[in-house]
Design a binder for these strands. Structure first.
Lengths: 335, 335
DNA sequence: TTGTATGCGTTATCAC
DNA sequence: GTGATAACGCATACAA
């Protein structure tokens, strides 16, 4: 049986109210009783029951992290940033995701908001609409949106358009004019923004956008990359529209799959065809040639997110802030 | 303001007790009031406050996952398995780790047990002693230990000794007699077990164990691998004790770093020196030659862990079970 | 079939 | 300074 305030009160000859005040360091308690109560608490190895405390104070000291799917390197790095800076802050983080639960993201939002387990949330998703996110505002649940800009909530996001622009401009400056681009049909990847950056660079250099140079992957995987690489090589052989460089906002694994397939088919990277990825996964450094890619500052985003949300929760700050991070272009050998 | 049982009761003209019984699908409620209450609950968009419910029932529908550090691919894959099969089971998972909190693992155990937030825990660590783990038993907190065998708690673990044995035997069968082994000083890696497997294979084939063939990494990283590779090459040049194969129970990244450095120094893999890793990280498939390695069935372990713990929590099962998984030897090109 | 009363462990508002 | 007492939202034993 867990030891409660009552146990301590009984043993100390005071009431639970007094014990509670001692435990919470409230003023107006005599030094002597304070010492006695504290000693007994330690002796009995007392831990406050956070559930009961939460009921009484309407504060749980818990932050929810809401994600579509935890099985993503992107999200894990952000989580790492969150946990890393949680430090002394006495908060517990609770992970919510839709995985395997057969519910929509909005259902999950409702659950998180109405269940009452958390004091605030960090929502990491680019696939929810403002209409859905509105729920947090409506129910006055402190919330930080990570991954895209929002007009109605605090948000932390990366300038992916700028990241793509930098990458593509780099390719153009190297002399490339036919630059293929790999997209993927995953809503929470901000893929449209990334394509915009690609177009920006083209426009700036007066290079026409050509839809034949857009390749679609079904997921960010090496097999998809290999498949697309073959498609490109075949197009090369039939002559026209031969890309001399590929930019893969769909992700690094696709880019890596392409590199490996290009090499297998006898092409030299980056001489015959340059490749640029997106994400900077660990394998990007391993592939030969090492992958030039775009990195998002995930740890920093997680760090900022947890700090912001705790501020919101504790200070009741109501202003809507948003913070943009720059994507970092990592130049290695593949381009 | 969140809607409570009281709100529904008021509107339905019954008491909170009745509403509670309806919500929880208790028997002996007339169909008519049931329907009416349910309709109003839906209309008001009622969600039970899980904190209050937890206090009343002493059940939180929450499982704690306790880890030393979430920033590990191993743990993330297990988490993925856990979340994946959580499915309809109406449980929330709460992540606890010691990262950046300046507390010991045992302090964390205490927090988890005494705070009362969770009904059961999955502890993923190989670095805690039985004496520390005893706490869960003592306080009757249902617990599954993942990563090593335990006599006092349910446990799920991988036969790492067998996995190492298989890998090293494979090298021996390929004709290798001087097999280097890379260790790392990280307690929660079960490194000793893995070394035992290495020794087992040696003993079986009557090959003497030689401590000069043991190399120590400081972490599982490419830079450590490169460093060790150079050490080995230098030893080669001075003549004696030249390993013709390397087994890296310290992890794949170290093995990959070695491969890249060996290649840079002009050695051919696996002809001049064979390399076998441990873990099967995504990059293992990317390096050239692709890394032969040992994989632990992480998803399956997570799956079993969550099923077991929910059973324990719900059925109050008291027997101590343990389940061993076999490690899988993945043969690629580096050996 | 439904209402009344009580408790879960804690905090908070009063008196004294 | 400290003790009663109510309240948080819900569940449940018992009474009606």
């Amino acid at each position: 049986m867990a030891v409660t305030l009552k146990d301590i009160a009984l043993k100390a000859g005071v009431t639970t109210a007094t014990v509670s005040m001692v435990i919470n360091n409230k003023p107006n308690i005599s030094e002597t009783t304070k010492k006695r109560v504290l000693a007994i608490a330690r002796e009995l190895n007392y831990y406050p029951n956070v559930i009961a405390r939460g009921l009484a104070t309407k504060r749980n000291n818990a932050i929810g992290v809401v994600v579509p799917n935890i099985a993503s390197g992107f999200i894990m790095r952000i989580m790492e940033g969150i946990k890393n800076t949680l430090r002394n802050a006495n908060y517990t983080v609770i992970l919510f995701d839709t995985i395997g639960q057969g519910i929509t993201e909005y259902n999950l939002f409702q659950k998180v908001v109405y269940e009452g387990r958390v004091d605030g949330v960090i929502v990491i998703t680019a696939s929810s609409s403002d209409a859905e996110l509105e729920l947090f505002k409506k129910e006055k649940m402190p919330c930080i949106l990570v991954a895209k800009h929002s007009a109605i909530l605090d948000s932390i996001y990366v300038n992916n358009r700028g990241g793509s622009y930098t990458a593509v401009k780099y390719l153009i400056d190297k002399g490339h004019r036919n630059i293929g681009v790999v997209t993927v049909n995953r809503k929470n990847l901000n893929i449209e923004e990334r394509l915009d950056g690609y177009r920006d660079a083209l426009v700036e250099k007066s290079i026409p956008f050509r839809s034949e140079l857009v390749y679609e992957a079904t997921s960010d995987s090496m097999t998809d990359g290999a498949h697309l690489a073959n498609k490109i090589i075949n197009a090369r052989q039939s002559g026209d529209n031969v890309p001399t460089a590929i930019f893969s906002p769909a992700g690094d694994m696709t880019a890596i799959g392409m590199i490996k397939e290009f090499k297998k088919r006898g092409l030299k990277i980056p001489e015959d065809i340059a490749v640029v990825g997106y994400d900077d996964v660990p394998a990007a450094e391993v592939v030969e040639p090492a992958l030039t890619t775009v990195r998002q500052p995930k740890l920093e985003m997680g760090d900022l997110a947890i700090n912001l949300i705790i501020d919101k929760v504790e200070k009741g700050d109501k202003t809507i802030e948003s913070r943009e991070f720059a994507a970092k272009f990592i130049i290695r050998e593949s381009a």
